[in-house]
């Protein structure tokens, strides 16, 4: 599949290789980092930082932080998430962070890479345990 220069700059070598050799209908799973909307991100940065001593427990403090983060993330990337949901078969995550896992055909992934809200995309890959070593 053909990729524009902008699309190529957003992807890791594994995804580039996969897209180069994939048929348009081949299904891919990619990890995407989304670009927060600048205006919204600026607004979020100006939001008051929560003071843990104002809460009766750490759990209550964390609950407040979670709600704050959810609001912030929704403002920053919800538009891009909607666009991805329209283009791709499935989009997971994106509620708390700017990282989403997207699934779709190679053709759909290439289309998603044209979105300005998609900053980076990588092909899903194995993750290894840090294996213990022989004990001497």
């Amino acid at each position: 599949m053909n990729l524009s220069r902008v699309q190529q700059q957003k992807i890791d070598p594994l995804l580039r290789d996969a897209l180069m050799h994939a048929r348009p209908e081949d299904t891919l799973r990619v990890v995407m980092t989304l670009q927060p909307d600048e205006e919204q991100a600026l607004e979020a940065d100006m939001e008051r930082e929560l003071d843990p001593t104002q809460f009766h427990s750490r759990e209550a403090y964390r609950s407040a932080l979670i709600e704050q983060q959810k609001r912030r993330t929704l403002h920053e990337i919800s538009q891009t998430i909607h666009e991805l949901e329209r283009l791709l078969t499935a989009v997971h995550g994106g509620e708390m962070s700017h990282t989403v896992v997207a699934e779709g055909s190679a053709q759909q992934v290439v289309s998603a890479l044209t979105l300005t809200g998609v900053r980076r995309a990588s092909l899903d890959r194995p993750l290894e345990l840090v294996e213990p070593r022989p004990c001497r």
Partner: peptide, 27 residues
């Protein structure tokens, strides 16, 4: 053995749990 996608979503899940204070990772 795991995958990056699975890891990303596990972290997202963990971030939503108010009870968790520390995450221990060896991957």
């Amino acid at each position: 053995r795991g995958t990056v996608a699975n890891f990303a979503l596990a972290l997202e899940w963990a971030a939503r749990q108010p009870a968790i204070q520390i995450i221990n990772l060896s991957a």
